[in-house]
Nucleic acid binder design. Structure first.
Lengths: 328, 328
DNA sequence: GTGATCTAGGTCAGTTCCTGTCCTAGATCG
DNA sequence: CGATCTAGGACAGGAACTGACCTAGATCAC
């Protein structure tokens, strides 16, 4: 049957077994792999030579197990685990608030490339239902599109897509993608626009129907050393970004832990109060983050946030039935 | 140098190359792997025999690439991708709102077992700062603890930990873990308490300092067929869980898409209005989800949510400087 | 259409490497 | 102290791998 390539296939199966969080006696491994215990010992040696540290404990209750080493071994995952990882990566990519956005998308691209269709369906079904609480009216980034863009960027392949401008008009673009950058809660694509013969920054949530042309192009030198800096520079002129100043009636340490902001964004005022000073992307996001701290606070800047909080407050009061409650 | 085990190691390297989102001509693969092109073709055949579909395109621009097949190939990830996955899984495990909580934790356990120390540090540094917006006063679940519990559960290994009861008193427990269950936004451990000689349900966020004893115990038959059902039954008597009834001034389809609730939780009232009827775990969570829809709404049940919304509304208004603005 | 470039795969000989069966040594636990 | 496990050397037969050379078929650029 599948008796092909016995040695390599066995090594992979052995790796898969050893990744289970338990100890495997050599005899049991020999049974499972249908070889002699001596061969198991040799296989373990082979894995060690490959750089994967197999720890062995001696004595009656001993056995083998894979432990943390210098390099990551190939991950052998079952269906459900793969789905869990894919869903996690999708939400992480849709809500870039970390420092690993590009890596998330790369990993997602790598994973989706080899994701069996049945698992892809499950991921889609689950992903649609997830963490949609963030997009308070904001258009969300489609992970599928991100994956396509990331692929085209790493391969340096010409790309065609439809782009909806701020005024609602839609145009078709032909670009050479350079880098995918996350800023705040949004994704941006830095690319050279072949029709306009200049560098452009595209908001990914306005890109639809991306289509790799298959044409690979030589790497064009980006306009600036740091792509992220270029995107930021290009964007601060047009996209609204808010600079928040607020007084929070909560210890600075507590706020730092809960909001995960850099330490220089917080100035302690006294033991129970501190001042927050940092950037924000959307009003909804800012308001939710601040209110869910659960403490008293005063927002000083920007005025738009104060307006929004006022509106949110009245809406919450109306939702609670401030005027008249519903009859039963 | 590392010329050990040429065939197997080469297969893994080939897999790693083919997982990159690009096309690899056979000659280039031969160069990279330092074998003849004929051997590359044979290696590709081997991979195909192992079940990993290598797609080949012919012609001048042709080449090999790994595509989606029936089974997942071993994932070969670089450092940053691993960190991204680990962070994504941690947040997913801390906020179980999907249907794949157990799989997330299993995958996380598998990954953390072999995570090199330097990567572990990066994951810790990033994970601490992430998505802390959710825990509006609620104690958060420590992913590390989840991983330990999951490991002990799958291995059926006795476990010792400190447990803080609702009244604040802390006791040490010795249990045989049976299953880890996610319900709402919380994690629960179903286990047989060896001291009390009975089944108990522990809230994971109240468990600290878990310690596997290394003693493996035969699988005890759980009290009920379905562990989740048992946990639910045990919990509904003590833990507060809310049943929400609300009218939302937004089309039912839009709400379903944004909230990700099951279809039977929504009844369309008219074209622009629908009624939501579903469970919720904490008031903060419910309020945030509903308010971030951005639409007008009325909450009918539970009364606690209406009280909370009222309080939130006044707090938002105060934050906006409803009475008097700050002097400049 | 023609040629270039790529995948696909058969055959064959030399050689490497793998495997199972012995064996002994050392560590650990009850 | 004995049982149980890992660790690893020696050896012989056999399986499998590799490179070289060959032809066939598909695709694309010119």
């Amino acid at each position: 049957m599948d008796s092909v390539n016995t040695a390599s296939a066995r090594l992979l199966r052995l790796l898969s077994l050893l990744q289970t969080p338990r100890e495997w006696p050599g005899t049991e491994l020999a049974e499972r792999l249908e070889v002699s215990p001596r061969t198991v010992r040799r296989d373990v040696d082979r894995l060690r030579d490959l750089g994967y540290p197999v720890q062995a404990t001696m004595g009656t209750t001993g056995g083998y197990r894979l432990v943390a080493g210098k390099a990551m071994p190939p991950l052998l995952l079952d269906d459900e685990e793969v789905v869990a990882i894919a869903v996690g990566l999708r939400t992480a990519a849709s809500h870039p608030v970390d420092g690993i956005e590009e890596a998330s998308v790369r990993a997602l691209a790598k994973l989706e490339q080899v994701l069996p269709p049945r698992l892809r369906h499950r991921v889609n079904a689950l992903g649609a239902a997830t963490v949609s609480m963030f997009n308070g009216g904001e258009p969300n980034v489609d992970p599928e599109i991100l994956v396509v863009l990331a692929g085209a960027t790493t391969v340096q392949e010409r790309l065609r897509f439809a782009y909806e401008a701020a005024d609602g008009t839609s145009t078709r673009r032909l670009v050479e993608p350079c880098r995918l950058v996350a800023s705040g809660r949004r994704w941006y694509l830095l690319a050279y626009d072949n029709d306009r013969d200049d560098w452009r920054v595209f908001r990914v949530d306005r890109i639809s129907d991306p289509h790799p042309t298959g044409v690979r192009v030589p790497s064009r030198v980006p306009p600036d050393e740091d792509a992220a800096a270029f995107v930021t520079r290009k964007l601060y002129s047009s996209a609204p970004t808010y600079e928040v100043v607020a007084t929070l009636h909560l210890p600075a340490g507590e706020v730092a832990r809960r909001l995960g902001v850099p330490p220089d964004a917080l100035q302690p005022i006294n033991e129970h109060t501190c001042r927050l000073h940092g950037p924000g992307d959307t009003l909804e996001w800012l308001a939710a983050r601040l209110l869910m701290l659960g403490c008293e606070l005063e927002v000083h800047e920007p005025p738009e946030l104060r307006t929004y909080l006022n509106e949110l407050g009245t809406r919450a009061a109306r939702a609670a039935g401030g005027e008249r409650s519903v009859s039963g």
